[in-house]
Design a binder for these strands. Structure first.
Lengths: 212, 212
DNA sequence: TAGATTGTTAATCGATTAACAATC
DNA sequence: TAGATTGTTAATCGATTAACAATC
């Protein structure tokens, strides 16, 4: 008999950071409890959907009362694996790469990009936002040294797949891919795609055909 | 009798740039025709889905033959409104803002960010990647002058909603929002959200619970 | 208590995938 | 011609939304 295989709905997972941000704001305001109705109102979502999303984390609310904000924040943070810092490396210190190295919200949300790599030998030996930049030849050694499992990929699309292979060889099992290239990696390697042109297409098409 | 209201499926729209990129590569390789089967294979998609997506643009293929690559590229480009450059402004010349100003693929995909704004008076009067940077006080005047309709928002989340209001007042009807803030704008203003933490959550949660 | 809210099951909606006739 | 491919309708799948009993 096959397992029911309860899979986690990714749309729900992707909404969790928005809840987290809001809950932290409520907490700063001194609130202790919150209802799904209120969260839904703030984020223009359906209250039932918020309830379903939050139940993912295993937290329970109380009828008439709502949820304890502190517990809810904790549950989301643990669910996302943001209770411990994930150390990551970044490849490609162009404009986008540097922007991500300097993106402060990552720090308080479980991501610590501790080193960067670039093909340009002139950049090797420098630092960016306090993080060392190494040449590509050091990638395998440095990644192994710190047992890094996550890589942020901000190289030109033309070399993305080649670099991805090196990353996998170096032991990386999760790639945050900011290039438009589709990566061919083994099944055990997770790829999260951020496609700027896809997003721009979404806006542009809607503006072009206002009824879209 | 209500209109059938054939709405455009946004997931399809968002896949179009990937097709476009692939088709341009095929064209550079000297190909003239392509089948959905081949496109689907390259992008690991379902061939029927590719066919549905492409039919959005109104283009027709021929059984047994496939599609003419040139016509297909043209149809996608027109559908997305990328046949003419859309002039846009950017607010917030921090790390992420600068990265977007320097992001080259926008140019060949219908987006031209022609000016930038920043609260820091020291940055006013400078240029970034050849684009002038102005103070916030000039926003309304400069936007009206060029009849700008699209704004790229890369300010801190805490001021995002305030800036968004200024943008709307200045005549902007489409906001590409790179902040985590939810913007409250009138119905006629389109917002396209890019949420880095949402994406990081998607990767992090899957890595934390490998079965997710 | 009355009623706001949770948790859960059922219904709806929309996107993806399968099936298949038409066609080159 | 045979068969690969398109275009389209039907089936499936998964996410969102509605309904409602339980509860504090």
């Amino acid at each position: 008999m096959p397992m029911p295989a309860r899979v986690t709905p990714m749309p729900s997972v992707r909404r969790l950071p928005a809840y987290l941000r809001l809950l932290r704001r409520f907490q700063e305001d001194g609130d202790e409890r919150v209802s799904c109705t209120r969260i839904a109102g703030e984020l223009s979502l359906d209250a039932t959907q918020v309830r379903k999303d939050l139940s993912l984390t295993g937290i329970a609310g109380r009828p008439r009362i709502g949820y304890r904000i502190h517990d809810l924040i904790q549950a989301i943070v643990v669910f996302l694996g943001w209770d411990r810092q994930t150390e990551a490396l970044l490849v490609g210190t162009g404009n986008l790469g540097r922007a991500l190295l300097g993106y402060e919200p990552f720090g308080v949300n479980g991501l610590d990009i501790i080193m960067a790599f670039d093909v340009d030998p002139a950049r090797a030996g420098t630092t960016l936002f306090g993080r060392p930049v190494y040449g590509m030849n050091e990638l395998s050694m440095r990644a192994a040294e710190r047992a890094l499992r996550v890589a942020v990929l901000t190289v030109p699309g033309s070399v993305a797949d080649t670099v991805a292979r090196s990353l996998v060889e170096a032991g990386v099992t999760g790639i945050w891919n900011f290039t438009p290239a589709r990566l061919s990696v083994p099944d055990h390697v997770l790829v999260e795609q951020v496609d700027l042109l896809s997003s721009w297409a979404g806006l542009s098409a809607r503006m072009t055909r206002r009824t879209v």
